[in-house]
């Protein structure tokens, strides 16, 4: 449905987007995740034809956005970061204007607008001037605008920003509902949102894709065989015993949760499953094992791990190694 090939966008010397390629299949909900300035909005602006790419191509439903802009744009509904609404129009007038822009047939217009306002729950403010609406409602009007003409692709740039928690839930439900019938790209820096709504997450940093997968797999891929272990006993002694075991590549002391216990984060060598080794070690040293659970990285952790530093996957591994070494040193100093 959406095809982006080797997209580069530079502003003068600064490259906002550096050679990005990806595809979004029909019915997929893709989440762009990234810190501010990662190139999310720029990418969206290029996909929707608001900006032109420095190089590379964008195809929407098979139409190149630069060569066949009219055809391509017919398939797109776009909610930019700042909803493009006119304060001096009422909600209904505005949506009528948008439907005329998008060339909706006069006969279908009324029913379509009623349906959309109903879906987004803005029917009761239809007669109000947009400048008198709160930020949340403006955002909704912006979303309604994207739906006008029932495009099959929706590009939503931070659709829930500035909304209160209840509104966020509502908009998320709307997006989830829309995701059943539309191809959606949405951007956000709220991670729970992305994992709640999207089938696939793409993490962008400094204009590059640093990871792209389903939220679950992304989370498990980066957190394989990390175990949180709680052992009854004196902290220093437990730590020393674990650190001495050759099966673990990393042993990290965590904050104590229960008094009289030691809390450790253990990582197996070469990503090995070390639950058994943990148990045997505990038995051998006569420790009481209170807890041993696989520690999943939350999307937040992944996000931070991927976007801190220079974010390249190889670099990211090196960094992890370095931090492991550093932890090893601190752990030695503990001894």
């Amino acid at each position: 449905m959406i095809e982006v090939n080797h997209l580069v966008k530079s502003y003068g010397k600064y490259q906002a987007v550096k050679d990005i390629s990806f595809r979004v299949e029909e019915g997929e909900v893709l989440g762009f995740l990234g810190p501010n300035g990662a190139g999310k909005s720029t990418t969206m602006n290029v996909i929707t034809g608001y900006l032109s790419a420095t190089s590379g191509e964008v195809k929407i439903a098979g139409y190149d956005i630069l060569q066949h802009p009219t055809e391509a744009k017919k398939h797109i509904g776009y909610l930019p970061e700042i909803p493009p609404v006119y304060g001096d129009m009422t909600v209904r007038e505005y949506l009528q204007f948008v439907s005329e822009l998008k060339g909706v047939k006069k006969s279908e217009q009324k029913a379509m607008l009623e349906d959309i306002m109903d879906k987004i729950k803005i029917s009761h403010v239809a007669g109000k001037m947009i400048r008198n609406l709160s930020k949340g409602y403006r955002q909704r009007v912006g979303l309604a605008q994207a739906l006008v003409g029932y495009p099959d692709v929706l590009i939503l740039d931070e659709p829930t920003v500035g909304l209160d928690p209840k509104q966020i839930m509502e908009i998320r439900d709307v997006i989830r509902e829309l995701g059943k019938t539309h191809t959606i790209i949405l951007s956000s820096h709220i991670l729970s949102e992305v994992s709640a709504v999207c089938n696939r997450v793409m993490i962008l940093n400094k204009g590059q894709i640093v990871a792209s997968d389903t939220p679950e797999r992304l989370s498990s891929r980066l957190s394989e065989n990390r175990y949180l272990v709680r052992i009854k006993g004196e902290e220093e002694a437990v730590l020393a015993a674990f650190a001495a075991c050759p099966d673990f590549s990393q042993v990290q002391k965590m904050d104590q949760v229960e008094p009289g216990t030691a809390e450790l984060l253990v990582v197996g060598k070469d990503g090995m499953d070390v639950r058994e080794q943990i148990f045997r070690l505990a038995v051998a040293c006569d420790f009481v094992l209170l807890l041993c659970k696989s520690e999943k990285l939350s999307l937040e952790d992944i996000f931070l791990r991927l976007t801190e530093g220079d974010g390249l996957p190889e670099a990211e591994e090196r960094e992890a190694d370095q931090s492991a070494q550093k932890e090893g040193q601190t752990h030695e100093s503990h001894l």
């Binding site: 602006n45 608001y50 744009k73 017919k74 776009y78 930019p80 609404v85 006119y86 948008v98 822009l101």
Partner: peptide
């Protein structure tokens, strides 16, 4: 200024 050009330029109007 109001960023409404984003609407105009992304709809199928030349």
């Amino acid at each position: 200024k109001q960023k409404t050009d984003q609407l105009l330029l992304t709809t199928p109007v030349s």
